[in-house]
């Protein structure tokens, strides 16, 4: 599938900010099943984008703007060719020993509730790790009601039995790590054919490592391993670590941008 993505991030600063600085993980990398045909990032202010790799291998761009500004718009857009790999992530260099992906973070910490849930699923599923992870995805999909929550920490989402795709990924990661399975968070895009409304946040899912198999994605919100409808942007230990945009404005530290994401099949929708 060839997907065309337009991802807009628009800040409004009131009162005007005195300069802003942004860190972007907003450029997908290529790997088996994901070929980036073209991609660019536009900023509506003068700035120099500097590009680097973070230790997870993500492409990180950063820039700053000087002077007074009452708004800032960042647009990432491009086309990505995807193939269904049944969730397998291959053909990408891995920089960390997998043991790093057993670390807890604030967002992916587990509590007794998550640990018991994970242990029960582990006990009831066939002995191989792949079956356990599929059972975990099934189990979470059934146990959790979809919806936005204020707090997307694994513990909070699991206690409320409610969360969006990103919160569910945190619960999945917390449970898998408790079972000793290295797990991480992937941010990206999900193409939903027929959906007219744009998305207002990026998608997120979990990836787990199985010895001898490698990294496999699990999207508990959709109860599916990523297909060719998925475009993978960045990875991290949790949502914050893989966030497409982290920014600060001098004078207005906590401005929350308005996000609009439009995904279409390239060639099938007329571009404006």
């Amino acid at each position: 599938m060839r997907l065309r993505i337009v991802h807009e991030i628009v800040y409004a600063f009131d009162p005007p900010a005195n300069g802003a600085i942004q860190t972007l993980r907003l450029t997908p990398r290529g790997h088996d099943g994901q070929f980036v045909v073209n991609w660019r990032i536009e900023v509506d202010h003068d700035c120099r984008l500097s590009s680097a790799r973070d230790p997870f291998g993500n492409i990180v761009q950063s820039f700053n703007t000087d002077g007074k500004l009452d708004g800032l718009a960042i647009t990432a857009l491009g086309e990505v060719e995807t193939h269904d790999m049944a969730g397998m992530v291959r053909g990408q260099s891995e920089r960390f020993p997998v043991a790093v992906y057993l670390r807890d973070t604030q967002l992916t910490e587990s509590d007794q509730g998550i640990r018991s849930f994970a242990a029960e699923i582990d006990a009831a599923s066939p002995p191989d790790r792949l079956s356990t992870l599929h059972a975990l995805m099934d189990g979470l999909h059934d146990a959790m009601e979809p919806g936005e929550t204020e707090d997307d920490r694994a513990i909070a989402a699991f206690a409320a039995r409610k969360g969006d795709a990103r919160a569910l990924a945190h619960v999945f990661i917390a449970a898998a790590r408790h079972l000793g399975i290295p797990s991480r968070y992937a941010s990206g895009y999900l193409f939903k054919p027929g959906s007219e409304e744009p998305d207002h946040s990026e998608h997120g899912w979990a990836e787990a490592f199985i010895e001898g198999v490698g990294w496999i994605g699990f999207d508990a919100a959709c109860n599916i391993c990523p297909t060719d409808a998925y475009v993978r942007l960045a990875i991290g230990l949790d949502r914050v670590g893989a966030a497409p945009v982290r920014g600060a404005a001098y004078g207005d530290w906590s401005a929350v941008p308005k996000v609009t994401i439009r995904i279409s099949e390239a060639g099938t929708v007329k571009q404006p």
Partner: peptide, 13 residues
């Protein structure tokens, strides 16, 4: 690697 004071962000720096 699971130590809270280990910083993955420092790897390779």
């Amino acid at each position: 690697y699971r130590n809270p004071y280990y910083r993955p962000e420092m790897a390779g720096l």
